[in-house]
Nucleic acid binder design. Sequence first.
DNA 1: GATGAATGAGCATTCATTCAT
DNA 2: AATGAATGAATGCTCATTCAT
Lengths: 218, 218, 218, 218
Amino acid sequence: MEKPSRKERERKRRREYIIDAAEDVISKEGFDNATMDEIAQKAEVAKGTLYLHFKSKAMVYLAVCERGSSKLNAELAKVITENITGLKMIERLGHTYLKFVLAHPHYFQAFNYYEGLMNDQSTYSSELVTRCRENAQEAMRYIVRALQIGMQDQSIVDRYKPEELGAIIWGASKGIINMAFLNQKGVDHGPMKEAEFELESLIENFIQLISAALLKSK
Amino acid sequence: MEKPSRKERERKRRREYIIDAAEDVISKEGFDNATMDEIAQKAEVAKGTLYLHFKSKAMVYLAVCERGSSKLNAELAKVITENITGLKMIERLGHTYLKFVLAHPHYFQAFNYYEGLMNDQSTYSSELVTRCRENAQEAMRYIVRALQIGMQDQSIVDRYKPEELGAIIWGASKGIINMAFLNQKGVDHGPMKEAEFELESLIENFIQLISAALLKSK
Amino acid sequence: MEKPSRKERERKRRREYIIDAAEDVISKEGFDNATMDEIAQKAEVAKGTLYLHFKSKAMVYLAVCERGSSKLNAELAKVITENITGLKMIERLGHTYLKFVLAHPHYFQAFNYYEGLMNDQSTYSSELVTRCRENAQEAMRYIVRALQIGMQDQSIVDRYKPEELGAIIWGASKGIINMAFLNQKGVDHGPMKEAEFELESLIENFIQLISAALLKSK
Amino acid sequence: MEKPSRKERERKRRREYIIDAAEDVISKEGFDNATMDEIAQKAEVAKGTLYLHFKSKAMVYLAVCERGSSKLNAELAKVITENITGLKMIERLGHTYLKFVLAHPHYFQAFNYYEGLMNDQSTYSSELVTRCRENAQEAMRYIVRALQIGMQDQSIVDRYKPEELGAIIWGASKGIINMAFLNQKGVDHGPMKEAEFELESLIENFIQLISAALLKSK
DNA sequence: GATGAATGAGCATTCATTCAT
DNA sequence: AATGAATGAATGCTCATTCAT
């Protein structure tokens, strides 16, 4: 029972190492410019080895996405267990998401890549695709759950359907973070004249805005 | 003075025709898969001619973006002149944006492409980049202006800075539309379990939500 | 003396099993598309084990060829022992060849592969090459022997040198079978307009034609 | 009218030049080992240029085949117009084929390649495939025509159907030439012990044999 | 002996860009 | 200005073979 376990562990480690390398390369080169050669070189394995662990370049990217979304979900899950009002939970979820994206910008890119992939018809099925999708749905469920809690503890208006509200919050958050990112990177060519607004301040206000809208007025 | 003018007009026409072709190809093939060959063929000019009008493929795309953002701004500008409250104006701007994106999905892609370009360090300056940026800023100004009007006519709370609020609304809108797009195309692999929410319903609720948050309670 | 013998037997069995697997894969995928991975998988051994038994992929193929030619020769040998005229023997050899090829098309491919290998300078010597060559020569000898018998029993004209005549019959037979094969597979793009001629009918007529030419007229 | 003609001619010349190069490389490396890089290098053009004239590697090969079969047919056509008996015509066609193959061994390989291609399902349609097929059918028609002539002028027995007889002669010839080739190249590993038999002598005897079988005895 | 993970040379194909005419 | 033939760097993927365990 020990031997197969060791092999299995070894294999997993190698695989994780390749994903590490892919993350590195992506962080430096961007998703589109990264090549299998670079990833292999960074991972200090032969190119063929990459294909031993991943069926294609897309699968490597998907693995990065899957890892990123798993990590994010782990953070979000913690929030859900906290003993706070639903409204407060929404705020905390927003902060958590923001902090995560700031700490791991390339994961944010990875999420976008995954979404782009789904547009094509190429990557039908695959365990990785499934897991990425499940992770995305799980994140959504955290938001919806927080909304439901808020509606029950009366901290959030029950005027909206929690699922639809969740989708809106999720989508809007991504949009704001995306925009703020662009502003950070490209200095001043975003829609905002100058980088007067920091990403954090922006999200902060967004959360506040949403809170205001959700707040159950007496 | 007449001759150069005619030549100039001719040149402009040719240029516009190429952009037409690029839009066609992009609509059918997507941004990444479109090739200069296809665009040239569609435009019924030689590939070399493309380079007489655009320095690179990126510039063609930027031109599409510029045209798209100009058209969008023209629509938004109309709203600003309407004789309605600032809050109503925000709602109308949202609807206008939504309608535009639904009617011209490839422009939405073009906007994203432009933003992606800005991530790289390659395309520093260029008249086109400048114009795209200016257009983006102009769109933002419409939102900000509507907010200011709303704050003056007391239809919108004056708790937030209009510029920051504008950025939030702008970013959030793009995020929601993006998400809804993915959901439409890729069936059910977005964050939303089933395609229960139509793009329009989603945006509708978002606008309502924002309105609620902005509404100056008596 | 017993132990090594058992090991030896075991080894032989393993080897034969690999060749079985190779034949299976070749039959399904064709000679060029078959990979060592597939063969190993089919044989239920590790890829490395393949190389314990065969020095290279070519050697596996050669082993298939060797087995095929041995089987064919066994069939041809039976004919030679029959108590019939030389001319009849030639006919019977032809039929036997035809039946064998129809029953084992992949062996026919294997023979062609062997011949192709000999074109290159790579595979100089090797016991397998030697055995394949010997088998080919043995087949030829059966034909030559039949011709000699026929010349003695006066059923065949003695105008030609038996060796040369044998070569002609051998080569011609392969050519006809090859052509008929192509016709069968690729529908109508062979030299024959429509698949009006069945392989069997073709060979039948060829044997008849040769018989006519060889028949010692009174 | 002159200018487009010149361009067209230029283009044709380039194309022919690439085929020349392909023939060179094939002659030296064999069909399977030849790479597009080598062909491009030999033709003194960039690799991309190859794809300007041929859609794929297979198409280059097909072009070689087409050229070869066209040349062969031109030679065969001459024989048909000669004022000789049908039987003599068959002999002359055989000699012509033999001489052609001896002079251009790589065309013989090309013909085999074409036949191999047709086994796969990959290369469906294409003008080149069509032309190769038509050429093959045309060659067959020459043989059939000669047989018909021979049956009319009573130099050939009318016991067989000309079409079937033609197929047999065509297939058998290819088989004998193929075998003789292998013997020449691979020294002594063919079915014939030593290279006692020259290709020419072999074909010579084959033709004689066929003639004997076809000869209308009084 | 047996294993199978790792290797890495090899290859066809694409496509933005250039430049002679 | 317009052309389009030519370029050649770039890249994802395959697979026979090796070798440490």
